[in-house]
């Protein structure tokens, strides 16, 4: 048992159960090694009622949304439903959020929880990886802002220290205008992704300015390879067409799906199909 508390935490103001301030939460985390509880939709699947949860829903800093010139800043405690219903949210994220599970899960599940749980099948995490978002981690000792790729390092593995909280997500505003999100599940709702795909594209005067692909549910972490997509950045449409097979072959070599209920061969094929179709459609529309 992690926790051997003598006194019972009261569910009252200033308590350690559901702190009202970030400081209080961080103080608890620093001392007790509690398990941060955001929406509970992943945590509560397990049957262990004795876990020392630290409930985060009362912390205002986790519920915020703002934007500046460079970033959308999303509080880690925003639920998928809040994201879907807020007109200011980036459309790509709204689209991904709206395909997660079903209303009751979207009402409770949070974007921060979706990342911190570090499932390679997490649909909102996929979007954050594709957009090269940053995460802000705060502890009593200070804070750091790191690329999400440095945060998600394995299945159910992040670089969060036990005393840190994921407080905010910074999604770059650039390159969000033209995207595609595809979730491949076994049915149209309540589906766990078998493959998920997000792609961003930008071109100006016939020259590719940006290309970013990410694939979920294939490996231990979400797959994003800027160096592969970089093959085509700065290229004209004709050059990109000529390079597209090389680009696709690089993706083919880069993606190694793990074994799962649905075969690795299939998931690889879907990744490549979605990548190729995405590029093709964008090159056509850029012409």
């Amino acid at each position: 048992m992690v926790n051997s508390m003598v006194q019972t935490p009261k569910g009252k103001e200033g308590d350690t159960l559901a702190p009202k301030t970030l400081e209080a939460a961080l103080a608890s985390l620093a001392q007790e090694g509690a398990i941060p509880y955001a929406g509970g939709t992943d945590l509560m699947v397990a049957e262990d009622e004795r876990r020392p949860f630290l409930f985060l829903h009362n912390i205002a800093e986790l519920q915020g949304f703002s934007e500046d010139d460079e970033y959308y800043r999303l509080g880690a405690g925003l639920t998928y439903t809040r994201i879907m219903n807020d007109k200011r949210m980036p459309a790509l994220l709204v689209e991904a959020a709206s395909q997660i599970a079903a209303p009751a899960i979207r009402n409770a599940g949070t974007i921060g929880g979706n990342i911190a749980n570090a499932s390679p099948k997490a649909d909102s995490a996929l979007v954050l990886v594709a957009t090269d978002s940053l995460v802000r981690l705060v502890s009593a000792a200070g804070e750091r802002v790191i690329p999400i790729g440095q945060f998600l390092v394995g299945r159910q593995k992040t670089t969060r220290r036990p005393d840190e909280l994921l407080v905010e997500i910074l999604m770059p505003k650039r390159w969000l205008a033209d995207y595609r999100f595809t979730k491949v599940g076994g049915r149209k709702a309540l589906a766990i992704s078998r493959v998920s795909f997000a792609g961003l594209f930008a071109a100006e005067s016939g020259v590719i300015q940006h290309l970013a692909l990410a694939f979920g549910a294939v490996e231990d972490t979400i797959v994003r390879r800027p160096q592969i997509d970089g093959l085509l950045i700065g290229k004209s449409v004709e050059e990109a067409r000529a390079l597209s097979e090389e680009w696709l072959a690089a993706w083919d070599a880069a993606i190694t799906p793990l074994r799962g209920r649905v075969s690795a061969r299939y998931r690889k094929q879907v990744c490549l199909n979605l990548a190729a179709a995405f590029l093709k459609s964008r090159l056509e529309s850029t012409d």
């Binding site: 509970g40 939709t41 509560m44 699947v45 949860f53 009402n107 409770a108 309540l190």
Partner: peptide, 26 residues
């Protein structure tokens, strides 16, 4: 959380009661 049979409203919002910890309810 896969069937919805245990759905309740929490502060007016639909949730699966199997995925809500009691400590969340204060």
């Amino acid at each position: 959380g896969e069937c919805g049979a245990c759905s309740v409203l929490m502060d007016g919002v639909l949730v699966n009661s199997c995925l809500v910890a009691m400590g969340r309810l204060q």
